[in-house]
Design a protein around this nucleic acid. Structure first.
Lengths: 242, 242
DNA sequence: AAGTGGTCTAGACCACGGC
DNA sequence: CCGTGGTCTAGACCACTTC
């Protein structure tokens, strides 16, 4: 019944313990397979009860950072490969050791396209920003992306910035929007003549089409993107469960 | 300090409480938005401590079955739409209101294909079962699937059964294998003449190619499937997070 | 046997929500 | 104000793994 020793916003004790261990793992001081201090050890040195120390380790387990084995201990989990993870184009490229580049082909403000507005849960005649970019990896054309979003809600778009920063970053920094998830519809289509030329493939070549709606943390659709990828340079990885 | 009142395998108290509430939800007795009994209420009627009742509700929350709100209570969560879920062909079809059919084009035992054996973590010269099926929906050709698995581990394959039961079911019933997840690599290719004929599309038409490795619950790869789908009749839905 | 995680108790105080 | 979930205590016994 003490409940003292806190800065006012009262970070729970189990959170502090959890963060401390998480920091050790993220800094590399604890590597995959290393044993993590036991419940009893943590309880003693942090001056908390067993249940509280246990809570901290349980949360780390739920986050996938540690594995717990009855009778033997708690261990740093092997780094997870993130499947079905939402990443920006540049993150995607750099994780494969490629240099990402983007060329803005078109940037128009004020487009009206009913079907796309509908997908973004906007009024049918809403003004949209339409941004068309050619994605390149190591200087080679890779994909063609056309992205739409509300011109009213997001008026500050500057072409120059988009050449360097991702749209992703722009939305986060300029508008404080945190993206949470994206729904993608994937199929195969034949490249039309314009796409073929830009992607440098024969007209009619099969390309991967991805139509994506990106949602913010509060569940609102923010952008709609139609993308065509050269199939020889891009394939999609999906993990399905259960 | 009692710890009595148990059948021998000792189902933990929090699990019993959890199962009981889960049953109420699954049977429809509790519907989305309904309030679930409080920690204190459950503790009293189940004769357990608050921490134990709390544990039960916490697990239900982690399973996504309930939402908890401090100060107001615990509520049945709205039913979740399962994204990136592993389902059989027939489940996939019936969820769209279509009738699934399968025609076995080929069933060969004893194939040796080094690259595929490698993907299944088998010795390079392992004997494989190769099963080729034409998938149809409402009588229309839909996709072409070639599936491989170890002939040594799974010798009991009967053509007749595969026309009706899914491979999925066969593995589960005959070998007690529970599938856990699948990794899929998706791209777009042009239909070769055989695929074009079977799928009734022009030669060279873009088709969606999915190469899938299916894993059992213990993380072992069980089957490798190469599938081609008519793009006009099938598109893949993926949800990506974060 | 010693140490670990898993379950559990019988309380407590707190912050928050709705009345 | 009262009921709710969130955090926490100072213990306990059990099942399991390692030595």
């Amino acid at each position: 019944m003490k409940m003292l020793t806190k800065t006012h916003p009262t970070v729970p004790a189990y959170r502090r313990i959890q963060s401390e261990i998480q920091a050790l793992i993220e800094s590399g001081e604890l590597k995959a397979g290393d044993t993590v201090r036991s419940e009893r050890g943590l309880a003693r040195t942090h001056g908390v009860s067993l249940m509280t120390a246990r809570h901290a380790l349980r949360e780390l387990e739920l986050d996938g950072l540690v594995e717990r084995h009855r009778g033997s201990g708690t261990f740093v989990a092997p780094p997870k490969i993130h499947f079905n993870k939402l990443v920006s184009f540049s993150e995607q490229m750099s994780s494969r050791g490629l240099v990402a580049q983007s060329r803005v082909l078109n940037l128009r403000v004020g487009e009206r396209e009913h079907d796309i507005a509908a997908r973004l849960a906007l009024a049918a005649d809403s003004r949209l920003v339409k941004l068309e970019r050619l994605r390149q990896a190591n200087g080679q054309p890779f994909g063609l992306e056309v992205c739409y979003f509300s011109a009213e809600q997001f008026p500050r778009v500057r072409r120059a910035r988009l050449e360097r920063r991702s749209l992703f970053t722009m939305f986060e920094q300029e508008y404080g929007i945190a993206f949470a998830y994206a729904d993608e519809e994937v199929d195969a289509v034949a490249a039309d003549s314009r796409a073929a030329e830009l992607l440098q493939v024969p007209k009619g070549a099969p390309v991967l089409r991805i139509r994506q709606v990106l949602y913010s943390a509060d569940g609102k659709p923010i952008t709609y993107t139609l993308a065509l990828y050269r199939s020889d340079r891009h394939s999609l990885l999906v993990r399905r469960f259960r």
